[in-house]
Nucleic acid binder design. Structure first.
Lengths: 214, 214
DNA sequence: TTGCATAATTTTACAGTGTTAATTTACACT
DNA sequence: AGTGTAAATTAACACTGTAAAATTATGCAA
């Protein structure tokens, strides 16, 4: 035990703790894992983590941030496929779904509704912002290349929300009796592709206009 | 204390307990409320509820089922507005959003990802099925009246998922920097309306077909 | 009316939780 | 070698869900 922990020592322990916590939290939920269990797997005392994190919530926030970072990295990688904006867009969507189903527990952790907002944890805010950025970037390209029409920011949020909804309903088992997920996803993509296709009349993201006649 | 609790006595106590639990769970999350706290508000001992529910999870399941029932009732009421399928559809969508924002905590409880599936709790399964049914019924009408084209079941799931995604991202604070919610919701509706509008070419819910030309 | 059987309820108890305060350990420096 | 002190551990506290034991209070038979 060095008299003063170096920054790298601290970072190392924090990372090791996060790795263990991420796996355990993902398996049994944050409430299903006790500090004593984490400590045992780490080979330290139950209170040692309190020198590295304020409390359990801070650990959870760090774990969520790490998950968001891996998620963002997966999306960013997908966006680097060669091809036009349409191809990239499809690749990002597929990467999104692939991540969610490959690591459902991480995804649950990231978007858990019962978690407090990221207000208290800047690292978490940064990581979510990074993921959001990538999720929106490809839509900007779609609009820039004239494949879709509308406000890219609005479209980006709408696409993201829709896909997220599909994923979480699936993860929550609420699509039990539904047709298979791929059909739902494909249909959603097609609806959006047609719905936002540039046409002669007004852009779809314009404010609704009163109809002239029925 | 009657020697044998009548069925109505049991039902009464269960309901009273659920009312208290729903409010508390919604306020602070199920994990944030202890059996002793519930018991105190009910004026009974901490273990009395165990004569009426197997455990805390069963109470939570009952509370969630009750929330789903109120949710379903709100949607059913909205669907009874007079007008064509389009008007009803819009009414249902608005009722959905209104409920979610009027009772965000109930909504969170209903769709909490960390909750176990409804496999163990038939009442919960019934209530969710009821809500799902109403959410899908108006889409069937849209297709029946020729306002939209496609498989109503598939479209219903897609619309539901998309709206749910929008709502939960908002509730999770992930739309912080986004344009206001109504704009997102309107845009989504317009995209779907255009995307599923019946046209000369193939229905959007058909399997994707290779384009004849670029 | 008095006992009694027994359902309903409460009290007690236990193992486990997150976290703080006290204590011990072990290093860096004089 | 001795000492100040950061780091780690242990001890302790108030709390949790819930099983088991103890208590209460009722409907019915005598």
């Amino acid at each position: 035990m060095p008299r003063n922990l170096s920054d790298s020592d601290v970072a190392e322990f924090r990372q090791r703790l996060c790795e263990v916590a991420e796996r355990r939290f993902a398996e049994r939920g944050a409430d299903g894992v006790s500090m004593r269990q984490l400590a045992q797997e780490l080979g330290c005392s139950a209170t040692t983590p309190y020198r590295y994190f304020a409390d359990k919530d801070a650990i959870l926030a760090a774990v969520r941030a790490a998950a968001f970072d891996r998620f963002a990295a997966a999306l960013e990688a997908a966006r680097r496929v060669k091809g036009d904006a349409r191809a990239q867009s499809r690749a990002v969507g597929e990467a999104y779904v692939r991540f969610a189903f490959a690591e459902p527990n991480a995804y649950r952790l990231m978007f858990d509704l019962t978690q407090p907002g990221e207000a208290r944890y800047p690292e978490l805010a940064r990581a979510t912002a990074r993921a959001r950025l990538t999720m929106q970037a490809h839509v900007k390209a779609l609009v820039a290349e004239g494949i879709q029409a509308g406000d890219p920011e609005v479209l980006g949020y709408v696409y993201w929300a829709a896909l997220h909804g599909l994923v979480v309903l699936q993860l929550a088992g609420k699509l039990g009796g539904a047709p298979d997920f791929k059909l739902l996803h494909d249909t959603m993509n097609r609806l959006f592709a047609r719905g936002a296709a540039p046409q002669a009349d007004a852009a779809v993201t314009a404010r609704p206009q009163r109809k002239a006649a029925r």
